[in-house]
Structures are given as structure tokens and as C-alpha cells.
């Protein structure tokens, strides 16, 4: 199945929820509304023709704008079709999104990492803890308002 046919099929099924489809350097980005992400993902995975079974990556972008600050990005690969698709979910003013870890188990740690780095909470996530930073750390380091040098005193040293 070619990417063109896949996009047409998705547009047919999710007519009102697909905001935009763009192509850059041969990669297709589908922008969808945050409300349908779980339904959209399960269609991508379980449809017998699409079979986007391998979630390669899940991350977020901080655009540093007040109105539309975060986007969550998914990269999904279809092994039978040898095709990769990118889903972009603009969160608007919200900072939470439904978890897709029920569809792809591998999303579990990716979502934890995104939560750790950006402070985006994923609803219905089985175990939303920090991935890399210590539990008592209060900030989200990949946000654009977190300084590169860190915040003095934010990482307590072990007691003597």
C-alpha cells in the first residue's frame, strides 16, 4: 500500500479530525486532534492493510508559544508496507493527553520520558514516573524555560 492510499483511507475514516497532512523530504506528517489519538492509533495498528505495528518513537516539542505550547509526536513504522508515518498532536493550552500504552506497550517508557522532560501527563498511563531525573526533582528539563546550566540547588546532593 502506498502512502497516498493510506492518507486517503485515513482522511475518509477521520474526516473532521485530521487537521493537516504535510510532506517534507519524503516524510509524511499527519496532524490530528488530541481527542481521537487513541482511536486513531488503534486504527493504524489493527487495520489489516495499514499494520503500523512498530512504534519507533514518541516525544514532544515545546514551541515556546503561549497559545499552542506543546505538540506530541509519534513515529510509527509499518513492517509489511515498509513505510513510516509521523503523527503530530498539537495540545493547545492543555498539558495532558490520553496514553497509547494500551495499544503499543513500548509507549510506556516513551511516555514516561516525555512526562519527565516536558511535564506532559498521560491519562490512563499504568506507571507514570520520572524516567531519567530523580523523583524529588521539581522541573522538566527539556522545556524551553529551563536554563541550560540548570537551576542551582534543584538536585540535592547526598547527605554526609
Amino acid at each position: 500500500m502506498t502512502m497516498e492510499k493510506i492518507i486517503n483511507k485515513l482522511k475518509e475514516k477521520f474526516a473532521g479530525s485530521i487537521l493537516d497532512v504535510t510532506e517534507f523530504r519524503g516524510e509524511t506528517t499527519v496532524k490530528v486532534k488530541p481527542e481521537i489519538i487513541v482511536e486513531f492509533s488503534s486504527f493504524l495498528k489493527y487495520d489489516s492493510e495499514l499494520k503500523f505495528e512498530l512504534l519507533e518513537d514518541l516525544t514532544a516539542i515545546d514551541w515556546a508559544e503561549r497559545k499552542n505550547r506543546f505538540s506530541v509526536i509519534y513515529h510509527i513504522f509499518s513492517i509489511p508496507n515498509s513505510l513510516r508515518i509521523r503523527i503530530e498532536v498539537p495540545l493547545g493550552t492543555a498539558d495532558n493527553l490520553d496514553s497509547v500504552s494500551g495499544i503499543w506497550k513500548t509507549a510506556n517508557w516513551h511516555e514516561r520520558e516525555t512526562y519527565d522532560m516536558y511535564g506532559i501527563t498521560f491519562n490512563n498511563h499504568p506507571d507514570l514516573r520520572r524516567m531519567y531525573m530523580p523523583e524529588e526533582f521539581e522541573y522538566h528539563p527539556l522545556r524551553k524555560d529551563f536554563p541550560l546550566m540548570g537551576i542551582p540547588g534543584s538536585l540535592p546532593l547526598p547527605k554526609k
Binding site: 516524510e27 518513537d57 513515529h75
Partner: peptide, 20 residues
């Protein structure tokens, strides 16, 4: 301006770089 994802088959598996 744009965003790309490139993945290479590394010894450990798929190493991907997503650049915006």
C-alpha cells in the same frame, strides 16, 4: 524549516534522530 526523522540500523538496533 522542517522536521525529519532518520533511522539507521546500528549494532544495538534502530538509532533514530528526530530533528526539528
Amino acid at each position: 524549516e522542517g522536521q525529519i526523522y532518520f533511522a539507521a540500523e546500528n549494532p544495538k538496533g534502530e538509532l533514530g534522530f528526530y530533528i526539528v
